[in-house]
């Protein structure tokens, strides 16, 4: 803090002295840079949020979002009372909750193992193979499932037959939809999520591992007592985010994996919204279902964030 202030220092007090308006005007160029992105969220995010009010109205295009007649909770009541309601809720919740419980730990386990590998080359090779599928499109993954699990030509059924079993019509069996969906989700995404945990693991102070090694701790003990506690904050945050998406995950793939035969388990809220809304043009009714879905998501997110903060863990805010 020398008094022989270099010229750069002089600008600071003068900046503070200016009124807020002057400050805003002097950085007008920054606001220009913001225009495209702000215009984008205004048009494609906030306008649809405003439009979501059609869930409480009988939308017709000529009256627009705010001009269509108000019907209150009519659409919500219709949905809750419809025969679809229970099935959709059960399917959505079980697909996503099971998916979360089964798929969430996999990348963590992979990261803990890969992190312990001594050979840098094998480590690199493993990483690139494991996350390669995340660059493949959902259409291709769903297409591969249809092909590989096909009853007559699929390689999976050939393997089953080679071991003396009977072929299974996987895509036509409601009980196989969830295992296939969750399994392919792990196949495609575990490697990419693993990288986030690996990054968190590299942030752990190597001195801890050194000290533990000197004290005679083996790899398993170091994983349990250093690595796992070390990445817990990241795990918690990703888990909260995943919970917030519990009713949201991968509906594109659900749509792609649906067949007429597996609908009893594969019809979820969002695919139903797509069909009722965009294929049958029941705009208000399906908007109400969509809103119902988002409300559950947000509630879950807030609840779990609150719980995590209560438990004195890391939270989103």
């Amino acid at each position: 803090m020398s008094r022989l202030a270099v010229p750069t220092r002089r600008s600071t007090p003068r900046l503070r002295g200016r009124s807020l308006n002057r400050r805003a005007i002097s950085s007008w160029q920054l606001y220009v840079l913001l225009i495209p992105a702000v215009a984008y969220i205004a048009v494609f995010k906030y306008w649809p949020m405003y439009g979501a009010q059609i869930a409480f109205r009988d939308y017709n295009p000529s009256d627009g979002f705010a001009g269509s007649p108000w019907v209150g909770l009519e659409h919500f009541e219709r949905f809750v009372e419809s025969f679809q309601f229970e099935r959709l809720m059960v399917n959505t919740l079980s697909l996503n909750a099971l998916g979360l419980l089964i798929a969430f730990p996999v990348p963590i386990i992979l990261a803990l193992i890969v992190n312990q590998l001594q050979s840098e080359r094998f480590k690199k090779f493993t990483q690139s193979v494991l996350y390669a599928p995340s660059f493949i499109s959902v259409v291709v993954v769903a297409g591969m499932i249809h092909l590989l699990f096909s009853p007559r030509a699929g390689v999976v059924n050939h393997a089953i037959e080679a071991f003396g079993g009977d072929p299974v019509f996987f895509m036509g069996a409601p009980e196989w939809f969830r295992p296939l969906y969750i399994g392919s989700d792990i196949w495609q995404n575990a490697g990419f999520s693993m990288i986030i945990y690996l990054a968190a693991l590299t942030a752990i102070d190597p001195a801890l591992h050194e000290a533990a090694r000197v004290d005679g701790a083996n790899k398993w003990q170091r994983i349990r007592h250093i690595d796992i506690p070390g990445i817990m904050p990241v795990v918690t945050i990703l888990f909260i985010l995943a919970i917030g998406n519990l009713f949201n995950l991968g509906f594109e793939k659900v749509l792609l994996m649906q067949t007429d035969l597996n609908l009893p388990t594969s019809e979820v809220i969002q695919t139903y919204v797509y069909k009722a809304g965009l294929q049958q043009a029941q705009f208000s009714y399906s908007a109400a279902i969509g809103l119902f879905n988002s409300a559950i998501n947000l509630t879950l997110l807030l609840t779990f964030n609150w719980v995590a903060r209560r438990a004195n863990q890391s939270s989103l805010w």
Binding site: V43, F44, K45, Y46, W47, P48, M49, Y50, G51, A52, I54, Y59, P61, F65, Q270, V273, Y274, G277, L278, F283, S286, A287, G290, L291, N293, S294
Partner: peptide, 10 residues
Amino acid sequence: DGGLIARYLV
């Protein structure tokens, strides 16, 4: 999120 339907209509 405004939802699929509102997004489509926009």
